[in-house]
């Protein structure tokens, strides 16, 4: 996991406030998890941008291939009935 000449790469996720999901903020290099957390604090929350930080080794992230976009996502495209606007209901029906 150690980078050939330096520290390994980490991805940083920040929760900006209670009630909000952690969101990808960027990446950084650090020798271990503890240093990654401290560096993330210094790098991504210098102006109180966060109340919680996750760091994940970048090589632990499994990503979909952009070339698989069609096979992965197209099956959802012809299922318009999954959206509420698909259904025609009488105008006098309120609150639905």
């Amino acid at each position: 996991m150690t980078h050939k000449k330096g520290y390994p790469l980490w991805e940083v996720f920040i929760r900006s406030n209670r009630g909000i999901d952690h969101k990808h903020a960027g990446s950084l290099r650090a020798a271990d998890a503890e240093m990654a957390l401290q560096n993330a604090r210094d790098l991504y929350t210098r102006r109180s941008e966060g109340v919680s930080i996750w760091v994940v080794p970048s090589n632990q992230i499994v990503a979909s291939d952009p070339d698989d976009k069609e096979t992965l996502f197209d099956p959802a495209e012809d299922k318009v009935y999954r959206h509420p606007t698909f259904y025609s209901l009488p105008d006098e029906l309120e609150h639905m």
Binding site: H3, K5, G6, L9, G26, S27, L28, R29, L43
Partner: peptide, 26 residues
């Protein structure tokens, strides 16, 4: 001090961006 620290931070954001293109930070 804050401003100089920001500049270090800006450098690090940008090295990370360059690394997504396959560049090596070292």
């Amino acid at each position: 001090m804050s401003k100089v620290q920001d500049e270090a931070g800006h450098g690090l954001y940008l090295y990370s961006a360059a690394e997504t293109l396959g560049a090596d930070r070292t």
